[in-house]
Design a protein around this nucleic acid. Sequence first.
DNA 1: GCCAACGTTGGC
DNA 2: GCCAACGTTGGC
Length: 159
Amino acid sequence: MTVQSACWLMKTEPDVFGYPDLERVGREPWNGVRNYQARNFLRQMQPGDRVLIYHSNARPTGIAGVAQVVSAAYPDDLQFRPESPYHDPTSPPDAPRWSMVDVAPLRAFPRLLSLEQLRELPEWQDSPLLRRGTRLSVLPVTAPEYRAALRAVGLDDLA
DNA sequence: GCCAACGTTGGC
DNA sequence: GCCAACGTTGGC
C-alpha cells in the first residue's frame, strides 16, 4: 500500500546555508543535526517527503522555500571527523549515533513566509515551531500546515 | 536518580 | 548583544 509522503520543516541559518545555497548546489547532505528528537525525525524520512526550509537567525525569519528528501537516512560522516565541530568521539562506528538525509530544492518561495505571517495562519496554531522555547531543528509538519504555507505564498500547484 | 551548572538555540 | 528556554553533563 502506498503511504502518503510526509512533510517536515528544517531550520537553517541562511548566513551559513540557506535555500539559495540549496538551489546552487542542487543536492545537499543535511548534516550536523545533534539532537536525538530531531535525529529520530530524520530517520523517519523517506525519499519524496517534502521539507519546508526555514531560515532562523535571520531578519526576518521564515520559510524560504520547499525542498524534497532524496535519500533515506544514513550515517552523518561528520560525527567521525575529529576536525569537524560536529565530531562526536563517543559515537560507536559500528552503530553510528547521528544520521542525515540528502535534500534537493523543489521551489523557492516567491517571497519569504515570515514567522509573523505563520503566526496568523489558523492551520499553524498548534505547530511546535510557534511555541515559545522550541529549539527543534527538524520537526514534522501536518498536511494542513503544509498546504496553508504554500497557499499563503501563491504556490497552490505544490499544495 | 537528582539537580545545578553549563552550553546552545533562536527570537527580539 | 541580550536573554529565556531548553538539552546535556557530571558530581553526588
